[in-house]
Simulated scan of single mutants.
Amino acid sequence: MGQRDHGGTELAAVLHALGDPVRLALIRRMAEDGESACSPDGLDVPRSTLSNHWRILREAGITETRRAGKARLMSLRRADLDARFPGLLAAVLGEDGRRGRSTPDGR
């Protein structure tokens, strides 16, 4: 098996993409809302920097993009990630086994 497969979901690339606070915020937003616009409200990040974050997430195989008119909407490739790296996304997002949020005390 080569270094890359499953649409570029190499573990090192996925871990790198998940390791940045801005990208993690984008992933959390998609996990909660289902999709995110390419320029979501509430993020104080320059457009060029945000574009780079989206590129890293896309190239790591974490997100997919769909067009809705002129807008681009990003969503998690959750099923692909869960199949390739079981439990990784849930652990990063702090979710329990049922994909729901865990409570602050970990229960």
Rank of each mutant, 00 (worst) to 15 (best):
G94R: 05
L15H: 05
P40I: 03
W54M: 10
R72A: 05
A91P: 08
P86K: 02
E64R: 06
A83V: 08
E35L: 01
D5N: 07
P46L: 04
G87T: 01
P86E: 02
D82C: 10
R77H: 09
R98W: 11
L57V: 09
P21H: 09
R29V: 02
H53C: 12
A37W: 01
I56D: 07
D41G: 11
L26N: 02
S75L: 09
R67H: 03
L88W: 09
D80N: 14
G100M: 07
V92L: 11
V22Q: 12
V14A: 07
R98K: 09
H53W: 10
A13D: 13
H16N: 13
S39V: 11
D80Y: 04
R72W: 00
P86Q: 01
A37Y: 00
L93K: 06
R77W: 00
L93T: 03
G7P: 04
G19W: 14
P104N: 12
R67N: 05
L89D: 01
A79L: 11
T103Y: 13
T49C: 03
I62V: 15
S48P: 02
I27E: 00
R47F: 15
G2K: 13
E10H: 07
D5T: 06
H53Q: 15
A91M: 12
G34N: 00
L15D: 05
I27V: 15
D20V: 08
L24G: 13
D44A: 10
A90T: 05
A17Q: 05
S39H: 11
A17I: 11
E35P: 00
D33R: 02
L43W: 01
R72K: 05
S75N: 10
E35G: 00
G34I: 00
R99M: 03
V45L: 06
K70L: 11
S102G: 05
D5C: 09
G94P: 02
A60L: 13
N52E: 13
D5K: 02
E59M: 12
V45S: 03
E95H: 07
